[in-house]
């Protein structure tokens, strides 16, 4: 089948140099762009589960300091005593770090691949028909959310930016942090970026995973839009609730 044949005309220039040898299938799958998009979709789904649970947990702030701190404390003893204290929490943390790592690694490698595929851009302006703002800004909203994540950890987990940060005093730390308008602004902007990221990602993952059927295709966009609005909308409301005194200490 691979016999040498004479080709008419100029040959096509190879753009990427991917090794095609017999390797274990997960390695082979990861080396392909479609495989990386699967990884992006699966890790993206896992991270969507995380942001949703995180948002639902945060609703406890409306029930007052006691409820909120009890919820925060309970995360340490999930499935205790079957699993030692902090055990489940650390499993979640390791899982999230792995998912973030894979999501970012595949995004980075695919972006490099796409830049190589069009070294010379169009010299006149493009007129996009289908590619919406969310789809075209995925890289930027992703970077914003990634940087914000680091800021968020430094602010409310490690307490770097709060002089009167008290470890395990979750409710007061939260209110003290978000009552500073510049910090609240960071939370609001970053969560709008998260919403835009989810609007495309929540739809795109279905395509990447090959989940396509006339039965539910109409619901895919609605799911992505609804998910983005609910998660990002509530996350934006939290700092506003603190600033306006709905939540206070």
């Amino acid at each position: 089948m691979t016999q040498a044949m004479e080709r008419r005309g100029a040959d096509a220039p190879k753009v990427h140099s991917t090794q095609r040898t017999n390797r274990p299938w997960p390695v082979e799958f990861w080396s392909s762009a479609i495989g990386k998009k699967w990884v992006m979709a699966v890790t993206g789904l896992g991270l969507m589960g995380f942001v949703f649970a995180h948002m639902v947990g945060n609703l406890k702030m409306f029930l007052g300091a006691e409820e909120f701190d009890a919820y925060a404390e309970s995360l340490k003893t999930l499935l205790y005593p079957i699993i030692p204290e902090n055990g489940v929490l650390w499993m979640f943390r390791v899982g999230l770090i792995v998912m973030f790592g894979l999501h970012i690694a595949s995004a980075y490698q695919l972006t490099r691949m796409n830049h190589r595929a069009r070294p010379v851009k169009y010299q006149s302006p493009r007129d996009y028909i289908a590619a919406n703002f969310a789809a075209r800004t995925m890289r930027w909203t992703g970077i914003i959310v990634g940087l914000y994540l680091l800021f968020h950890l430094a602010d409310l987990t490690w307490g770097w930016f709060q002089p009167d940060f008290v470890k395990a005093d979750a409710y007061n730390n939260l209110v003290n942090s978000l009552s500073r308008p510049p910090v609240a602004a960071i939370y609001i902007v970053a969560n709008i970026a998260l919403g835009i990221h989810l609007f495309h990602g929540g739809w795109s993952m279905f395509q990447s995973l090959g989940l396509n059927s006339p039965r539910y295709n109409g619901a895919r966009r609605a799911f992505a839009a609804g998910f983005a609005v609910v998660v990002a909308g509530m996350n934006v409301f939290f700092p506003i609730a603190v600033l306006t005194g709905i939540v206070s200490n």
Partner: peptide, 21 residues
């Protein structure tokens, strides 16, 4: 066919521009 395609072209990010064009 997918592997040959990936020797030459970029990756799909589900913009949907192709279907319109």
């Amino acid at each position: 066919m997918v592997e040959t395609m990936e020797d030459y072209f970029g990756s799909c990010t589900n913009y949907g521009e192709c279907q319109e064009a």
